[in-house]
């Protein structure tokens, strides 16, 4: 049996718009991944602890409220401080194009904005998986 890719889909912050997160979770399941889904209103701390306990390969963060510049990098920072910087962090949601370079600089490896086909996300996962 080969190693299964495990992905945590999480919604940091207070934003309750979970349509996109739920769609991605379900589509990734249909693509053969094991997806851990934790629901809305997760703190960066809870997301990081969950990711470590679940030994995931990827974390997909979804946010539509505009708090991504604060919350996404916080997740990466915490992962690094817990010696789990190898977990790959992806972002999605309403993210202005102008914010993407800054997010990437802070360790968010890819940002998927509205309208991204799921196959692009899968292609990314397959290209970087360990």
């Amino acid at each position: 049996m080969s190693k299964k890719i495990r992905i945590l889909i999480a919604k940091p912050g207070l934003d309750g718009h979970d349509r996109g997160a739920k769609y991605v979770a379900r589509a990734l399941k249909d693509a053969g991944y094991e997806v851990i889904y934790t629901g809305i209103r997760q703190t960066p701390e809870a997301i990081v602890k969950t990711a470590i306990q679940e030994d995931v390969d990827f974390i997909g963060l979804s946010l539509l409220s505009g708090a991504h510049n604060e919350l996404f990098p916080k997740v990466v920072e915490l992962l690094r401080s817990r010696n789990a910087g190898d977990i790959i962090v992806l972002g999605g949601g309403v993210i202005p194009e102008a914010d993407i370079p800054g997010l990437k600089e802070k360790g968010i490896q890819a940002v998927f904005t509205p309208g991204t086909p799921i196959r692009d996300i899968i292609a990314f996962i397959e290209s970087v998986k360990r």
Partner: peptide, 8 residues
């Protein structure tokens, strides 16, 4: 918990 969300 309001970090990043105030006024957004």
């Amino acid at each position: 918990i309001a970090e990043g969300e105030v006024g957004k």
